[in-house]
Design a protein around this nucleic acid. Sequence first.
DNA 1: TCGTATGTTCGATCCTAATCGAACCTTACC
DNA 2: GGTAAGGTTCGATTAGGATCGAACATACGA
Lengths: 103, 103
Amino acid sequence: MADAIYEPEPAAIELGSVLDALSDPMRLRMVAELHARGEVICRTLGPAEMPKSTRSHHLKVLREAGLTRTRVEGTERHVRLRYTCLENRFPGLLESVLKAAAS
Amino acid sequence: MADAIYEPEPAAIELGSVLDALSDPMRLRMVAELHARGEVICRTLGPAEMPKSTRSHHLKVLREAGLTRTRVEGTERHVRLRYTCLENRFPGLLESVLKAAAS
DNA sequence: TCGTATGTTCGATCCTAATCGAACCTTACC
DNA sequence: GGTAAGGTTCGATTAGGATCGAACATACGA
């Protein structure tokens, strides 16, 4: 379906890319949803009426920023937050953002 | 020199605005510099060769997002981080960002 | 009062990113 | 193989923001 799925190694995750990814309201919402729901099938993430090309775009930004990991399962993509990885790289960052987004 | 300086009250600070303000590389750098230097004169913040209209723009975004406070001193503006205020509103957020930016 | 220094605002330009339909690719299933 | 479903990529459009010069406003000092 696609070429190699690029995901940065923990050490390669950049603060600027993470902040940039989180600065979009829709992506922030998707990240919060991933945190609440755990691993999720791509198609079920975000507003149901969102066009799949738009969803694919946002997930690509999140993945390339190092925020999510994607697992191929048949024709589906299973997506989850790289929570522990992010916490190791930037301690407290994702935790505080998620707590702030929940309130 | 200017009209009323708008700065949001602590409770009115929004996560989206903060993330958006921090997602710009130049503003992130300015925030890190403010953290390192404490209160500074507007004109001395950021690259010396930055046009003052650009500097003024970035400081406006930071101020309206709730990240900085501006104090008028004669013809100058003294700027500082609203660190404690931000920590109260979004615990751990600014701290983790600054720590990440420093590394 | 006249100039000078500090910032702000305005307006124009330019660039990036968000959005989304259409075409395409891969897998599953018959 | 044929078809359908899940996602990706491409291309075009559009909106928003970064940048910066120029004009303006304010405060201070000669």
